[in-house]
């Protein structure tokens, strides 16, 4: 039993509250650090894949301080608010978009010792909370009183409701195999074999639907810059805009961590039985798998062109949904026959 387990099973008290608050602030700093360097990494990866260098001026040869400089610039930007905007909702929207993005991280177990909660319905919690961000996006689109913004917001809503269902259904196979929604138990069930080998179809569906939920290319219609200028955040500037970007990248963090937990076996060693779990290598395995997934998302962004709105919707309903439904029964059959 690790120290966090014994802490979670002790009587709730103000001491616990203080420790959890400290852990929360630590996690907040980790996510902010991740966002800073993920943006840089994305620009670098994008640069090299397009045969150019990417940022290489601020902070040495590799442009290590580029994102920091960008954030400072955003802090000094004037905060304009259109006069016809709905003031309350306009101010509220970035908060509604950001808070759930950070909230979902609470359930993700990174290693056996590095987790914050042990919630029985962890997976359901993630899916339920992550849906709230879309309300923030729609609110932003509506409150801006801008035609592009409203269109972007509506597209975000349509996209989210179409891809939420394949996303939710693809993980049912995993729940069938594990018999639990607890993410810690899901990782423990993968001690011998990662679920990506047992559920390859689910992995593909989850990856595609996850990209759509993240509003990343090829599913970045809500903010398609060539047709909607910037979509739902046209009217946002300075730090309010930064919070939309921040929530997008925090979701990238959370979703990549979730894919690692669900499909790649979390902190378990990639080759089972080599006994490398005991010496505290869990964090290393998790980080490697996590970085691979983040890189995959960046790779997809650079490789694929944006879909049309009709292709997007029809792909979600006519292809992904039937496959996800079939996958549920396929997994039940496999479980019935082989386990």
């Amino acid at each position: 039993m690790t120290w966090i387990d014994s802490l979670l099973q002790s009587q709730p008290s103000w001491t616990n509250f203080a420790i959890f608050a400290g852990l929360g602030v630590t996690m907040l700093s980790i996510t902010l650090g991740f966002v800073t360097f993920a943006i840089l990494a994305e620009r670098k990866v994008m640069g090299y894949m397009q045969l150019r260098h990417g940022p290489n001026r601020v902070g040495g040869r590799f442009g290590l301080l580029q994102s920091v400089a960008d954030i400072l610039k955003l802090l000094l930007k004037e905060d304009t608010r259109p006069k016809q905007a709905d003031k309350t909702l306009f101010v509220l929207a970035p908060v509604i978009a950001y808070a759930p993005a950070f909230l979902v991280i609470a359930v993700i177990p990174f290693t056996e010792a590095f987790k914050f909660t042990d919630i029985g319905v962890g997976l359901l919690y993630y899916i339920a909370i992550s849906g709230i961000s879309t309300i923030g996006i729609v609110t932003a689109g509506w409150a801006s009183n801008n035609k592009y913004a409203l269109m972007g917001g509506m597209r975000a809503a349509a996209q989210m409701i179409s891809y939420e269902i394949p996303l939710v259904m693809s993980v049912i196979g995993i729940i069938l195999f594990t018999g639990s929604l607890n993410l810690v138990e899901i990782v423990q069930a993968q001690e011998n074999i990662a679920f990506i080998f047992l559920q390859p179809i689910a992995f593909l569906i989850f990856l595609i639907a996850g990209t759509a939920e993240l509003n990343r290319t090829p599913f970045d219609l809500p903010e398609a810059e060539s047709e909607l200028v910037a979509g739902y955040h046209v009217e946002y500037s300075g730090f309010r805009w930064a919070f939309f970007m921040l929530s997008e990248y925090v979701y990238l963090f959370a979703l990549s961590a979730l894919i690692t937990v669900l499909f790649l076996g979390g902190w378990n060693a990639p080759i089972p039985g080599i006994g490398l779990n005991e010496i505290g290598l869990g964090a290393v395995w998790f980080t490697i798998k996590f970085i691979v997934i983040v890189f995959l998302f960046m790779w997809m962004r650079i490789t694929f062109p944006r879909l049309r709105a009709d292709q997007l919707m029809e792909f979600g309903w006519k292809v992904l949904l039937p496959i996800a439904l079939a996958n549920i029964f396929l997994s039940a059959l496999i479980k019935e026959l082989f386990f």
């Binding site: 959890f20 996690m27 907040l28 950070f102 909230l103 991280i105 914050f116 909660t117 919630i119």
Partner: peptide, 13 residues
């Protein structure tokens, strides 16, 4: 305790 953590994360967010 778990939901206490969730509340703290919500507060921080």
């Amino acid at each position: 305790n778990s939901y206490l953590v969730v509340v703290i994360f919500l507060g921080l967010g």
